[in-house]
Write a protein that binds this DNA or RNA. Sequence first.
DNA 1: TCTTGACGGTCCATTATTTGGACCACTAGT
DNA 2: ACTAGTGGTCCAAATAATGGACCGTCAAGA
Lengths: 259, 259
Amino acid sequence: MGTITKALELLDFFSRSSPEIGLGEFVRRSGREKATVHRHLVELEQNGFVEKNPQSRAYRLGPAILRLSNVRETTHPARRLIRPVVTQLANDVGEMAHASLLHGNQLSPVFHFDPQRHGTQVHYDEAELLPLHATSSGFAVMAYSAPDFVAQVLSIAPKTYTRQTVTNPTELQLILERTRAAGIAEANQTFDNEVTSQSAAIFDSSGQPIGAISVAVPMVRATPDKKARIRSTLAQAALSVTRSLGGVLPVNHPMCTPT
Amino acid sequence: MGTITKALELLDFFSRSSPEIGLGEFVRRSGREKATVHRHLVELEQNGFVEKNPQSRAYRLGPAILRLSNVRETTHPARRLIRPVVTQLANDVGEMAHASLLHGNQLSPVFHFDPQRHGTQVHYDEAELLPLHATSSGFAVMAYSAPDFVAQVLSIAPKTYTRQTVTNPTELQLILERTRAAGIAEANQTFDNEVTSQSAAIFDSSGQPIGAISVAVPMVRATPDKKARIRSTLAQAALSVTRSLGGVLPVNHPMCTPT
DNA sequence: TCTTGACGGTCCATTATTTGGACCACTAGT
DNA sequence: ACTAGTGGTCCAAATAATGGACCGTCAAGA
C-alpha cells in the first residue's frame, strides 16, 4: 500500500459521530505507528485537508475539502441532480431514501433524506462507506458490473454484519442473477438486523453502473404491499437519475427498451 | 516535499475552467515525471478522490470529496453559517462578496455571491486559491497573524500579478499596520487590474484569524462614498461571522470592546 | 499505407523517502 | 513525586517512490 493511500485512509475515520480526532485516536484506529500517522496528518494539514482545533489539538476536516466539493458540484453536479429525486422518492414512499456512488470496492454515500413519518427511523451515517456484498445498493451495482470486478470484490474476505449477511460467492452470484432479472435489488437484514432495503442501480453514458439509489425500511413496517410500491417508485427514480446524468441503461437491463 | 503533498497538489489543478484533466496535462502543469504522476493519480482514484471519465480517459474529482464535505459541513458548518451573511452583505452593498478560509500560505474560497446589479462583474473562480500578499483578504488575515507567520509568507517570492502588486516586505508591513489600525483591509488593483477590494478578517475562539470576508468592486464603480458604505457593512458582517463561529476578536482589533 | 507525434500506461534497477522504535515535553490525576 | 495519558520529534535502517526507457493505441498527414 502506498503512502498516499495510507494518508487518505486517515480521512475516512472522520464521521458525523467523530468530527474531531486526536493523534492517539488515529493511531488506535489505523493500527499504524504514531510517528507515521503524525507525519501524514502534518502533510494533510499543510494541504488544507485537515486542520487542527487550536484548543483540543485534535484534527478535523479542513477547508480544502470545501473548495474541491465546490468545483466538483459546479462542474459535475451529480449531487445537485440526485438530491431532488431522492427527496421526492422518500416522500413518495414515506421512508428513508439514499443515494451512493461506487468508489473502488465500496459505495460512497452522496445524499439521504428521511421524511420521518414514523416513530422508528433507519440509522444512516452519511460518512460511513457501504460494503458491496452486504447492501442492496451493492447488489444493484454488482449485478450490472463486469464479472471479474465482482469476482475481485468477493475474493477479499466479505465481512459478516448480521446472521443474514451472505458471504458465500456462489450464493451471492444467485442473488445477482435474481437482481439482474428484476432490475431491483433487495437485501433483508444483511447489513442491519432491523432493516430491509431495496435498490436500483444508476448508470453512466456507457451503461456501466456508477452507483445506486435505495430505500431502507425497518423490518416491522416492511409489508409485501409497501415493498411492491417502493419497487416501482424506485425503478422510476433510478431511471430518472441515470437520464439526468446523461447515462443509459445497459442492454441487459429489464427496463431497457431496445431502440 | 513528501509524496502525499505531491499527490494532493494534483487536486489543486482542478477548477471550474478545467474540471477534467488528462495525464499529459497533469504532467505539464506539475512539472513532474509522467510515471510518478500516473501512479499518484491511480492511488487517488483508488481512494475515490478522482475518477476517470471512461470516454476521454481524463480525470475528474471523485465522490470521496462529496462525502467528506458532507461530514465537514454537518459537523463544522462554517459554510452554512457564512453563506447567508455573505449573501446579505452582497445584496446590501450591491457588489460581489466572498469568503475564504486560511490554509497554509493561501486562502481557500468558501462561498461567493454576486447580486449582478450591474453590467460589469468581477470575475471570481471559487476554485482558485488566493495569495496572501496580493489580496485584501490576505492583508486582513496577515494583519492579525503572528509576525513570524507573516515573515515566512513574505519570504517566499511574492508573485507579481499587476503593476500595483506589492512585493516589498517593508512596504507590506506598512499596509498591515494601516489595516490593523482600521480593522479593514483594502487592496487596489493588486490582484486584478480592474478591481479594488476591501476585506475584514474573521477569527476563531482564540482570536486567531482564520479567514476573511471581502467585497470586490470594479474600479469604475469604486467611489469614495460607496467604499465607505462597504467598510461599515463589511465590518458588521465579519463580526457576525466571527461570533456565529464561536470566535472572538483579538485584543488589538479596533472593534474589540474591552470586557 | 507508412510516418509521426501525442496520448495513456507499464517496467524495474536505482535512489531517496518513509518508517518506527526510542525519546522528549507537557498535563492531569493519585 | 510518581504514573499514565496526551502530542510531538529524531535518526539509522529498510522500504517504497522514482524516472528513464519502453509499449500499445489512436489520429492526422504525407
